[in-house]
């Protein structure tokens, strides 16, 4: 099989019937990211754009492509890595992220969950009652926003892809949660909340992996030890089965969601400032402080038990 240009085929995009060689695939991919940014009005000229980077394929590809089009968009890039403190997992991601940033001549800023919560994620999941993914998600979001504020960034880009978006939409459909469906749009409602953007949100995960492999990007592929079989995994497998039988389903899930949020109104929750950290939150005490306070009590109890 050959690409339309005559080059050796590396990818058949089943949902459009197109066949790509490496060069044409790279051109398509980079143009698609650029078009997504433009059509969703994600970035303005002269924006300082933070990028949440983990060393995994999505954020590495995002950083790599944005660095290619940053000149055209007239933006600067500021990668941020959050070290969750997961033994045997995070180190390979840090190494990969450092190599990528060094090769792109970008300064990598690192922050850790331990600095914020006083414990690593490994310690939190030992001490606390919540699931490790709850601590990780809540504290990571808070840290990224904190870092972005400190660096006076205008936007915060993450590597969420089309599959992530389709899964999130489907999970909220199943739960009947219209408010969360609206929140996926990522509209910041407070000036202290840095606007989140997802420039890969129209690109399937498979194409992202393909781009990483074709361009020999330095990517960490270790699986998080806390990522087990969960609701999202089941939804992911279900959507991939549908996509395999009927190519284009993932894109249709997105376009269906866009129509639903256009024709429905979300419940408007007033925004407060967290009484503890002054961070914007829909609650009086933000979820991050709530978790951190809960851990402080658990830590005290554990120390007391040892002393007794």
């Amino acid at each position: 099989m050959k690409c339309a240009c005559g080059g050796k085929a590396v990818y058949t995009r089943r949902y459009s019937g197109q066949i790509f060689c490496k060069k044409c695939f790279n051109n398509y991919f980079e143009r698609k990211v650029h078009d997504t940014i433009r059509s969703q009005k994600m970035i303005n000229r002269l924006d300082r754009v933070g990028i949440g980077i983990s060393g995994g394929k999505d954020s590495t590809v995002l950083l790599s492509v944005l660095s290619k089009i940053a000149g055209k968009l007239e933006i600067t890039l500021h990668p941020i890595l959050i070290d969750e403190g997961i033994t045997g997992y995070r180190l390979s991601g840090i190494n990969a992220a450092e190599k990528t940033c060094k090769s792109l001549r970008l300064n990598l800023k690192m922050a850790s969950i331990k600095d914020l919560a006083g414990s690593t994620l490994d310690e939190l999941q030992e001490l606390g009652d919540s699931k490790p993914c709850t601590y990780c998600g809540v504290l990571r979001r808070k840290l990224l926003n904190k870092e972005a504020n400190e660096q006076k960034l205008d936007k915060l880009a993450t590597g969420h892809n089309l599959d992530d978006e389709a899964q999130a939409i489907m999970m909220n459909y199943v739960a009947g949660d219209i408010n969360r469906l609206h929140r996926l749009k990522g509209t910041a409602t407070d000036s202290d909340l840095i606007k989140r953007i997802k420039p890969l949100n129209r690109i399937p995960e498979k194409e992202i992996m393909l781009y990483a492999l074709l361009n020999k990007l330095e990517v960490a592929s270790d699986e998080c030890p806390y990522a087990g079989e969960n609701h999202r995994t089941k939804i992911r497998d279900f959507i991939n089965t549908l996509e395999s039988d009927q190519p284009g389903v993932k894109h249709k899930i997105i376009s269906g969601w866009e129509k639903i949020i256009e024709t429905s109104t979300p419940e408007k929750k007033p925004m407060h400032k967290c009484k503890i950290c002054n961070h914007p939150s829909s609650r009086k005490i933000c979820r991050s402080c709530e978790l951190t306070e809960e851990i402080k009590i658990k830590r005290k109890d554990a120390t007391k038990e040892v002393a007794d």
């Binding site: 099989m1 393909l210 492999l213 074709l214 991939n240 089965t241 395999s244």
Partner: peptide, 19 residues
């Protein structure tokens, strides 16, 4: 294996699933 969830390399080269 679901073809939507993998990339295939044959004899060291990334290739299409129709190979």
């Amino acid at each position: 294996v679901n073809r939507e969830a993998v990339v295939t390399v044959v004899n060291g080269e990334i290739t299409v699933e129709e190979t």
